[in-house]
Simulated assay, not measured.
Amino acid sequence: MSRSLRRGALAATALVISVASLSACGAGNDAQTLGIRPDNAGVSVDDIKVLNVLVITQPEHGAEGPAVVSATLFNNGDKQQTLESITLPGTSATVKLAPAKGTGPVVVPAGGSTLLGGAGNASATIENGREAGKNGSSQQVVFKLSKTGEAKVNAFVVPAASYFKEFGPSEIPALPTATATATPTGTATKPAAPTGTATPGSTAGPTGEATHAAGH
C-alpha cells in the first residue's frame, strides 16, 4: 500500500471513531436531559435565532384550558431586543407574553438568550388553548422582535406529557367527574289514615271523626 493510501485509511478510521464517540455521548444522561427538544423547529433572522419551538397543549385530549408556546431566543447582536408579540396565523389563538419576573416586556438581552416556558422562565400563554392546533400537526408561529422584525417557523403541536410536561401549561384544569345520584336517607312513611268512619250523609271532620251534615 502506498503512503498516500495509508494516510487516507488512517483518516477515515479516525473519522469513524470520532463519530462513534459523539454518538455514545449523545446516548448518555445528558442526551436524556437535552432530548426534550433536539429536533424541533428553529429559524435565524439577522441577529436573532429562535430554536426548539413547540406549541404545547393540555395533557388530556379535548381538555379545556390554556396552551403555551415554548422556545429559546438567542440574541447575537450588541443591543437587547424586545419580543413584541407571538402569533399563530390561520387561527384565532391569542398569545399573552409575560417576563420571568414582575411585569413588562419580554427582553432578549444582547449576547444572551431568553427561554419561554417552564417554571421560573418567561411565558407565552395561549389563553384559548383549543385554538392552538391539533396535537401532532404543524403550526406556523411568528415571533415579532423590536429590531429584527418577524421570525417565522413551523412548530409541532404536542400535549404536555412526558418530556414536554415541565414546559407545558401551568394551569391544568381537573377533569370532570361523574356526579353521584343522591339517595334519600330517611324512610318514607304512609300518610295517616283517618281514625273515624264516615257514614252516609255525614262529612269527615279534621280529626277524622264523622260529623252529621247540617239539617240532619
Rank of each mutant, 00 (worst) to 15 (best):
S113M: 13
G149A: 05
N128W: 14
A174C: 00
D78P: 12
A119I: 14
T82A: 07
K96L: 13
A180V: 08
G118V: 02
E84R: 15
S92D: 11
N121C: 13
V68K: 08
G149P: 02
V69P: 06
P59M: 05
L83V: 01
L145C: 14
K101G: 05
L145Y: 15
A63G: 15
E166Y: 12
L116H: 10
P159T: 01
V108G: 13
Q140L: 04
V95F: 14
G120V: 03
T94W: 02
A161N: 06
L88F: 07
T125W: 14
P99R: 05
F167Y: 12
G111N: 01
S170Q: 09
V108N: 15
K79F: 04
K79S: 14
T94D: 03
E60G: 01
E166P: 15
F143S: 01
I126T: 00
V68N: 13
K79P: 00
G104N: 15
N128V: 10
L83Q: 03
G62Q: 13
L97H: 13
L145H: 15
S146F: 10
I86D: 11
G118K: 02
A132S: 15
E166A: 09
E60K: 10
A122C: 06
Q80R: 09
G120E: 12
E127W: 03
N121R: 11
I172M: 05
E131K: 06
G136A: 00
P159F: 04
L115C: 06
T114C: 09
N128F: 14
S113C: 04
E171Q: 15
F74L: 14
V95T: 11
F143A: 01
T72S: 14
V157Q: 04
T148I: 08
G117R: 01
N154K: 13
F167N: 06
V108A: 08
L116T: 06
F143T: 00
P59S: 03
L83E: 01
